[in-house]
Amino acid sequence: MNFTLHIWRQENATAEGHFETYKVSDISPDCSFLEMLDILNEQLINDKIAHPVCFDNDCREGICGMCGLYINGRPHGNDDGITTCQLHMRKFHDGDEIWIEPWRAKAFPIIRDLVVDRSAFDKIIQAGGYISVTTGGVPDANTIPVPKRFADMAMDAAECIGCGACVAACKNASAMLFVGAKVAHLAMLPQGHVEAQERVKKMVCRMDELGFGSCTNTYACEAECPKQIKRQNIARMNREWIKQLFAGNHKPAE
């Protein structure tokens, strides 16, 4: 198969970027999208034309969340429930033109070419996306039973891989699905109840600070999530937020 690629090239965070057009030929339909880019890079190095195209990738089996390209108008390309590394060239037609862009969001500045800085996600988690236990001194694992239904729903939310496709897809570059998934995962478990209100408050405030947009309920995030995390998690977060709004603060007696 032969393809014409239009790839966003940008030397560094501050440089001007532009699209560059490359051609690749004789690509096997069984080739994954990232392997196709490997082949292009091999070609670029061998022909000494240009610096190889930089793109983030790691596990290449759809779980690490490192890869993420905006391909022909869709995060992770034209298939549902996959990451970029799971996209195969057989999903394209011979001779296709493919536009490859980095995630675009104020909160995800470009590092080079297609590589963006997603540390904002880490910062949101740091704000409170956890249960504050230190090592040791915890009760036996079976002390608190968790209804299977809740455990399963928590797991559904916990499958988020933090790739940022939700932000990339959202017209407001909002991180609601990412934050919602974590808030919902922990709020669903009795262990997470204790801090639920504090958690949602801190995480949402951090999210706002970091320059993500707000939700307009278009559910583009849900449509593009490689782990198919549901919008109901955002609703859950809203619910937790409302609870938090109406909860009183503890004021010590004078």
């Binding site: 239009h6 966003w8 970027g17 699209f19 905006y70 022909n72 108008g73 869709r74 995060p75 034209n78 536009w99 862009e101 675009r104 969001a105 104020k106 909160a107 897809a169 017209k171 407001n172 570059a173 909002s174 320059g211 993500f212 947009g213 707000s214 307009t216 309920n217 278009t218 559910y219 583009a220 449509a223 593009e224």
Partner: peptide
């Protein structure tokens, strides 16, 4: 407020299925 959250727009129009 949301306008500035994607300073550089995508070149390709979105093909995501949305509400």
């Amino acid at each position: 407020c949301n306008r500035g959250k994607r300073p550089v727009r995508y070149h390709q129009p979105s093909r995501t299925k949305t509400a």
